[in-house]
Protein backbone atom coordinates (compact mmCIF):
# COMPACT_ATOMS: atom_id res chain seq x y z
CA UNK A 1 0.00 0.00 0.00
CA UNK A 2 2.72 2.48 1.00
CA UNK A 3 4.93 1.24 -1.83
CA UNK A 4 2.01 1.71 -4.17
CA UNK A 5 1.42 5.25 -2.85
CA UNK A 6 5.04 6.27 -3.53
CA UNK A 7 5.02 4.56 -6.94
CA UNK A 8 1.80 6.27 -8.02
CA UNK A 9 3.06 9.66 -6.82
CA UNK A 10 6.28 9.14 -8.77
CA UNK A 11 4.27 8.20 -11.84
CA UNK A 12 2.13 11.30 -11.37
CA UNK A 13 5.21 13.50 -11.04
CA UNK A 14 6.76 12.09 -14.21
CA UNK A 15 3.62 12.40 -16.35
CA UNK A 16 3.23 16.02 -15.24
CA UNK A 17 6.77 16.73 -16.46
CA UNK A 18 7.12 18.16 -19.95
CA UNK A 19 10.45 16.42 -20.64
CA UNK A 20 8.67 13.10 -20.89
CA UNK A 21 6.38 14.34 -23.64
CA UNK A 22 9.26 15.91 -25.48
CA UNK A 23 11.14 12.61 -25.52
CA UNK A 24 8.00 10.75 -26.58
CA UNK A 25 7.25 13.14 -29.45
CA UNK A 26 10.82 12.84 -30.71
CA UNK A 27 10.60 9.05 -30.53
CA UNK A 28 7.37 8.97 -32.52
CA UNK A 29 8.85 11.33 -35.11
CA UNK A 30 11.91 9.04 -35.40
CA UNK A 31 9.70 5.96 -35.82
CA UNK A 32 7.73 7.75 -38.52
CA UNK A 33 10.91 9.03 -40.16
CA UNK A 34 12.00 5.43 -40.85
CA UNK A 35 9.87 5.57 -43.97
CA UNK A 36 11.54 8.77 -45.23
CA UNK A 37 15.04 7.44 -44.53
CA UNK A 38 14.29 4.16 -46.28
CA UNK A 39 13.65 6.16 -49.46
CA UNK A 40 17.11 7.71 -49.27
CA UNK A 41 19.04 4.53 -48.56
CA UNK A 42 19.89 1.44 -50.49
CA UNK A 43 18.29 -1.63 -48.99
CA UNK A 44 14.95 -3.10 -48.13
CA UNK A 45 12.46 -0.50 -46.99
CA UNK A 46 10.93 -3.01 -44.56
CA UNK A 47 14.22 -3.79 -42.80
CA UNK A 48 15.22 -0.14 -42.53
CA UNK A 49 11.85 0.84 -41.07
CA UNK A 50 11.97 -1.96 -38.53
CA UNK A 51 15.58 -1.19 -37.70
CA UNK A 52 14.95 2.51 -37.24
CA UNK A 53 11.80 1.94 -35.21
CA UNK A 54 13.42 -0.48 -32.76
CA UNK A 55 16.48 1.75 -32.46
CA UNK A 56 14.28 4.76 -31.71
CA UNK A 57 12.26 2.86 -29.10
CA UNK A 58 15.44 1.65 -27.42
CA UNK A 59 17.28 4.99 -27.55
CA UNK A 60 14.42 7.17 -26.32
CA UNK A 61 13.47 4.61 -23.71
CA UNK A 62 17.01 4.73 -22.35
CA UNK A 63 16.96 8.54 -22.44
CA UNK A 64 13.78 8.54 -20.35
CA UNK A 65 15.16 5.96 -17.93
CA UNK A 66 18.33 7.96 -17.35
CA UNK A 67 17.14 11.55 -17.30
CA UNK A 68 13.81 11.10 -15.58
CA UNK A 69 15.21 8.35 -13.30
CA UNK A 70 18.19 10.37 -12.12
CA UNK A 71 16.04 13.46 -11.56
CA UNK A 72 13.31 11.79 -9.55
CA UNK A 73 15.37 10.67 -6.55
CA UNK A 74 17.61 13.70 -6.59
CA UNK A 75 14.69 16.12 -6.66
CA UNK A 76 13.26 14.61 -3.49
CA UNK A 77 16.55 15.24 -1.72
CA UNK A 78 17.34 18.60 -3.30
CA UNK A 79 13.87 20.02 -2.69
CA UNK A 80 13.77 18.43 0.75
CA UNK A 81 10.47 16.68 0.19
CA UNK A 82 12.26 13.62 1.51
CA UNK A 83 12.26 15.16 5.01
CA UNK A 84 8.50 14.79 5.16
CA UNK A 85 8.57 11.30 3.65
CA UNK A 86 11.22 9.84 5.96
CA UNK A 87 9.31 11.21 8.95
CA UNK A 88 6.27 9.18 7.85
CA UNK A 89 6.00 5.51 8.77
CA UNK A 90 7.88 4.18 5.77
CA UNK A 91 11.22 2.43 5.45
CA UNK A 92 13.95 3.89 3.32
CA UNK A 93 13.88 0.73 1.22
CA UNK A 94 10.18 1.36 0.54
CA UNK A 95 11.06 4.82 -0.68
CA UNK A 96 13.63 3.53 -3.18
CA UNK A 97 11.46 0.66 -4.36
CA UNK A 98 8.41 2.92 -4.65
CA UNK A 99 10.35 5.41 -6.73
CA UNK A 100 11.66 2.57 -8.86
CA UNK A 101 8.27 1.01 -9.46
CA UNK A 102 6.76 4.40 -10.33
CA UNK A 103 9.43 4.96 -12.89
CA UNK A 104 9.07 1.43 -14.25
CA UNK A 105 5.38 2.20 -14.76
CA UNK A 106 6.28 5.41 -16.61
CA UNK A 107 8.65 3.44 -18.85
CA UNK A 108 6.04 0.78 -19.45
CA UNK A 109 3.44 3.34 -20.55
CA UNK A 110 6.04 5.15 -22.61
CA UNK A 111 7.21 1.96 -24.30
CA UNK A 112 3.61 0.89 -24.97
CA UNK A 113 2.85 4.20 -26.71
CA UNK A 114 6.03 3.94 -28.80
CA UNK A 115 5.28 0.31 -29.67
CA UNK A 116 1.73 1.18 -30.70
CA UNK A 117 3.07 3.99 -32.91
CA UNK A 118 5.68 1.64 -34.37
CA UNK A 119 3.15 -1.11 -35.09
CA UNK A 120 0.73 1.41 -36.58
CA UNK A 121 3.39 2.62 -39.04
CA UNK A 122 4.33 -0.97 -39.94
CA UNK A 123 0.69 -2.01 -40.31
CA UNK A 124 0.07 0.94 -42.62
CA UNK A 125 2.93 -0.23 -44.82
CA UNK A 126 1.89 -3.86 -44.56
CA UNK A 127 5.08 -4.87 -42.73
CA UNK A 128 3.50 -5.75 -39.38
CA UNK A 129 5.46 -8.51 -37.66
CA UNK A 130 4.61 -9.51 -34.10
CA UNK A 131 7.93 -11.28 -33.54
CA UNK A 132 9.42 -7.80 -33.16
CA UNK A 133 7.67 -7.90 -29.78
CA UNK A 134 10.39 -10.22 -28.48
CA UNK A 135 12.99 -7.51 -29.04
CA UNK A 136 10.70 -4.94 -27.40
CA UNK A 137 10.25 -7.14 -24.32
CA UNK A 138 14.02 -7.30 -23.93
CA UNK A 139 14.28 -3.54 -24.51
CA UNK A 140 11.90 -3.15 -21.55
CA UNK A 141 14.07 -5.43 -19.41
CA UNK A 142 17.09 -3.35 -20.40
CA UNK A 143 15.24 -0.17 -19.41
CA UNK A 144 14.38 -1.71 -16.03
CA UNK A 145 18.06 -2.43 -15.48
CA UNK A 146 19.21 1.02 -16.64
CA UNK A 147 16.65 2.64 -14.33
CA UNK A 148 17.97 0.63 -11.39
CA UNK A 149 21.51 1.76 -12.26
CA UNK A 150 20.33 5.40 -12.54
CA UNK A 151 18.62 5.20 -9.14
CA UNK A 152 21.70 3.54 -7.61
CA UNK A 153 23.98 6.37 -8.75
CA UNK A 154 21.52 9.09 -7.83
CA UNK A 155 21.23 7.68 -4.31
CA UNK A 156 24.65 9.14 -3.56
CA UNK A 157 25.75 11.54 -6.33
CA UNK A 158 24.56 14.65 -8.17
CA UNK A 159 22.27 14.38 -11.23
CA UNK A 160 25.10 15.34 -13.57
CA UNK A 161 27.46 12.69 -12.24
CA UNK A 162 24.67 10.12 -11.98
CA UNK A 163 23.69 10.70 -15.61
CA UNK A 164 27.33 10.46 -16.65
CA UNK A 165 27.90 7.23 -14.69
CA UNK A 166 24.68 5.70 -15.99
CA UNK A 167 25.40 6.61 -19.62
CA UNK A 168 28.92 5.19 -19.20
CA UNK A 169 27.54 1.98 -17.68
CA UNK A 170 25.10 1.72 -20.60
CA UNK A 171 27.85 2.18 -23.19
CA UNK A 172 30.29 -0.19 -21.51
CA UNK A 173 27.43 -2.67 -21.02
CA UNK A 174 26.94 -2.77 -24.78
CA UNK A 175 30.65 -2.91 -25.56
CA UNK A 176 31.68 -5.25 -22.77
CA UNK A 177 32.58 -8.02 -25.25
CA UNK A 178 35.56 -5.82 -26.13
CA UNK A 179 36.87 -5.66 -22.56
CA UNK A 180 38.53 -9.13 -22.44
CA UNK A 181 40.05 -8.45 -25.87
CA UNK A 182 41.41 -5.14 -24.57
CA UNK A 183 42.69 -6.81 -21.39
CA UNK A 184 44.60 -9.36 -23.48
CA UNK A 185 46.34 -6.59 -25.37
CA UNK A 186 47.32 -4.65 -22.25
CA UNK A 187 50.29 -5.48 -20.07
CA UNK A 188 49.39 -6.49 -16.54
CA UNK A 189 48.82 -3.39 -14.46
CA UNK A 190 45.98 -1.15 -13.31
CA UNK A 191 44.58 -0.74 -16.85
CA UNK A 192 44.25 -4.45 -17.37
CA UNK A 193 42.83 -4.98 -13.87
CA UNK A 194 40.22 -2.27 -14.55
CA UNK A 195 39.15 -3.98 -17.78
CA UNK A 196 38.77 -7.31 -15.99
CA UNK A 197 36.82 -5.76 -13.08
CA UNK A 198 34.47 -3.82 -15.41
CA UNK A 199 33.87 -6.96 -17.45
CA UNK A 200 33.00 -8.94 -14.33
CA UNK A 201 30.90 -6.26 -12.59
CA UNK A 202 28.94 -4.55 -15.36
CA UNK A 203 26.07 -6.36 -17.07
CA UNK A 204 26.50 -7.48 -20.65
CA UNK A 205 23.66 -5.56 -22.22
CA UNK A 206 24.20 -7.25 -25.57
CA UNK A 207 22.43 -10.31 -24.13
CA UNK A 208 19.31 -8.14 -24.13
CA UNK A 209 19.80 -6.90 -27.67
CA UNK A 210 18.11 -9.07 -30.27
CA UNK A 211 17.04 -6.20 -32.50
CA UNK A 212 19.29 -7.24 -35.39
CA UNK A 213 18.12 -10.86 -35.22
CA UNK A 214 14.40 -10.12 -35.25
CA UNK A 215 14.69 -7.57 -38.05
CA UNK A 216 16.59 -10.03 -40.21
CA UNK A 217 14.25 -12.87 -39.41
CA UNK A 218 16.76 -14.99 -37.46
CA UNK A 219 14.62 -17.36 -35.37
CA UNK A 220 14.72 -16.55 -31.65
CA UNK A 221 13.28 -19.12 -29.26
CA UNK A 222 11.05 -18.17 -26.36
CA UNK A 223 13.55 -19.85 -24.07
CA UNK A 224 16.32 -17.52 -25.19
CA UNK A 225 14.14 -14.49 -24.51
CA UNK A 226 13.21 -15.82 -21.08
CA UNK A 227 16.81 -16.57 -20.19
CA UNK A 228 17.97 -13.11 -21.26
CA UNK A 229 15.07 -11.49 -19.36
CA UNK A 230 15.98 -13.52 -16.26
CA UNK A 231 19.58 -12.35 -16.55
CA UNK A 232 18.47 -8.70 -16.81
CA UNK A 233 15.99 -8.93 -13.96
CA UNK A 234 18.49 -10.63 -11.65
CA UNK A 235 20.98 -7.86 -12.32
CA UNK A 236 18.23 -5.30 -11.69
CA UNK A 237 17.43 -6.86 -8.33
CA UNK A 238 21.11 -6.81 -7.33
CA UNK A 239 21.57 -3.18 -8.33
CA UNK A 240 18.41 -2.18 -6.44
CA UNK A 241 19.66 -3.99 -3.33
CA UNK A 242 22.90 -2.07 -3.63
CA UNK A 243 20.99 1.22 -4.03
CA UNK A 244 18.94 0.46 -0.92
CA UNK A 245 22.13 -0.41 0.99
CA UNK A 246 23.67 2.96 0.12
CA UNK A 247 20.47 4.89 0.71
CA UNK A 248 19.91 3.37 4.14
CA UNK A 249 23.13 4.82 5.49
CA UNK A 250 22.74 8.23 3.95
CA UNK A 251 22.40 11.46 5.98
CA UNK A 252 19.94 14.01 4.63
CA UNK A 253 21.71 17.19 5.54
Amino acid sequence: MKLYAIAINTFREAIRDRILYLILVFALIMIGAGRAISLLTVGSEEKIMKDMGLAAISLFGVATAIFVGVGLVFKEIEKRTIYVLIAKPIRRSEFILGKYLGLALVLFVNLSIMTLGFYAVLWYKGFLDVTLGKAIVLIFVELLLITAIAIFFSSFSSPFLSSLFTVTSYLIGHLSWGLPLLADKLQSGPGRALCVVLYRVLPNLEYLNIKGEVVHGVPIGGEQVLLAAGYGLLYTALVLMLAIGVFRRRDFV
Binding site: N9, E13, R16, K79, R80, Y83, V84
Partner: peptide, 14 residues
Protein backbone atom coordinates in the same frame (compact mmCIF):
# COMPACT_ATOMS: atom_id res chain seq x y z
CA UNK B 1 4.79 11.48 15.14
CA UNK B 2 3.95 14.55 13.09
CA UNK B 3 6.71 16.67 11.60
CA UNK B 4 6.79 20.07 9.92
CA UNK B 5 10.21 20.92 8.43
CA UNK B 6 11.65 24.41 8.21
CA UNK B 7 10.63 26.28 5.04
CA UNK B 8 8.62 23.30 3.84
CA UNK B 9 8.74 22.56 0.17
CA UNK B 10 6.33 20.00 -1.13
CA UNK B 11 5.46 18.44 -4.47
CA UNK B 12 4.49 21.51 -6.45
CA UNK B 13 2.66 19.48 -9.09
CA UNK B 14 0.13 18.25 -6.51
Amino acid sequence: IGFLPENPYFYEYL
